[in-house]
């Protein structure tokens, strides 16, 4: 068993401390660390794999109405897939979800296809009125996620916690293994 990165343990602690016991997810590489920590150390958290992000928010909306406090984990590219569910379901019905967003397209990116949405994430959140917070370091991950979750569920407003690549892969040589484009 490999040691889980501190930021991933912090995210799990934050989700749990916010009272969330249901995590609906569309995974990516950084989030796989979070999922592993949930599986191994948080046996009271239910993990539900969705096919795409909009569907994940639909499942989460049902969980909330049934009395649960749901978290949805997605990659920033999936925010585009989420917009209809956010703006026409979660927001008008005041159904809160804690969103944990693994960022792509920011510092450290190797795939140009990730850049436009990665750059737009904060602007999109602001345009539709979804508050967001950025996890600045592994040490503050737990508090940032917990406070976002508490605010979401306390005010019935979905809240996005962004996980930058400098936190999720910055010190991971494997995360930097892609070759630079030379042509």
């Amino acid at each position: 068993m490999t040691t889980a990165p501190a930021w991933a343990i912090g995210v799990c602690n934050g989700v749990h401390a916010a009272g969330s016991r249901d995590v609906v997810y569309v995974p990516d590489n950084p989030l796989s660390h979070v999922l592993r920590v949930f599986e191994q150390q948080f046996r009271d958290v239910r993990l539900i794999l969705a096919t795409r992000e909009e569907e994940a928010l639909g499942i989460a909306a049902g969980l909330y109405l049934g009395g649960r406090l749901p978290t949805v984990m997605l990659q920033s590219s999936g925010l585009g897939n989420s917009l209809n569910a956010l703006t026409s379901l979660l927001m008008p019905y005041q159904i809160p979800v804690l969103m944990v967003v693994s960022m792509r397209g920011d510092a450290g990116e190797w795939n140009a296809a990730q850049v436009p949405m990665g750059r737009a994430v904060r602007g999109i959140c602001e345009a539709i009125g979804v508050p967001h917070a950025t996890v600045e370091a592994a040490e503050t991950a737990s508090d940032t996620v917990r406070l976002a979750g508490k605010t979401a569920f306390g005010t019935r407003t979905s809240y996005a916690c962004l996980l930058p690549r400098r936190v999720t892969t910055g010190s991971d040589p494997q995360g930097d293994r892609r070759r630079s484009v030379t042509l």
């Binding site: 569907e55 639909g58 499942i59």
Partner: peptide, 22 residues
């Protein structure tokens, strides 16, 4: 009775979430 007045396609997903929670 809950009427999903938009978000086409998500009624079955909401149903799944509700069924799991209840």
């Amino acid at each position: 009775f809950f009427y999903l007045q938009h978000a086409m396609g998500l009624a079955s997903s909401m149903g799944l979430g509700i069924a799991l929670s209840k």
